[in-house]
C-alpha cells in the first residue's frame, strides 16, 4: 500500500510541476521542481482528494504545520502517516 501512496503523491507533484514522474526524485524539494506557494496549495488539494484525507496545512505558517513539506520524501511520509491514521 505504501508504494501506491508514494506513486500517487509523485504523480500529483509531477503533474503540478509539469514534469515526467521520473524527474521527481525523493530528495527533490518543491522549490527545485519549480512549485510555488499556489502550486503547493493545489498539490495539497489534489492529495486530499486522491486519498480522502485532511492535510493540516496553513499557508501562513508552513513551517509550523504538522505536515512536513521539506522534500518529496517528507511529503510522501506525511501522507502515508495520514492515510494510516485514516484507516485506523
Amino acid at each position: 500500500m505504501s508504494d501506491a501512496v508514494k506513486d500517487k503523491v509523485i504523480e500529483i507533484i509531477a503533474e503540478q510541476a509539469v514534469l515526467e514522474k521520473s524527474d521527481v526524485k525523493m530528495d527533490s524539494t518543491l522549490e527545485s521542481l519549480g512549485i510555488d506557494s499556489l502550486g503547493l496549495v493545489e498539490s495539497i488539494f489534489a492529495i486530499e482528494e486522491a486519498f480522502d484525507i485532511q492535510v493540516p496545512f496553513n499557508a501562513n505558517e508552513p513551517s509550523e504545520s504538522d505536515f512536513d513539506i521539506s522534500s518529496v520524501a517528507a511529503i510522501v511520509a506525511a501522507v502515508q502517516g495520514l492515510v494510516k491514521e485514516q484507516a485506523a
Binding site: V41, I44, F57, N58, A59, N60
Partner: peptide
C-alpha cells in the same frame, strides 16, 4: 459569511 462564501476562502488555506 455563507457556507459557500466561507468554503471558497478555506480552499486557499490562508484563513485563521
Amino acid at each position: 459569511l455563507s457556507f459557500g462564501g466561507v468554503k471558497a476562502w478555506e480552499g486557499l488555506r490562508v484563513m485563521s
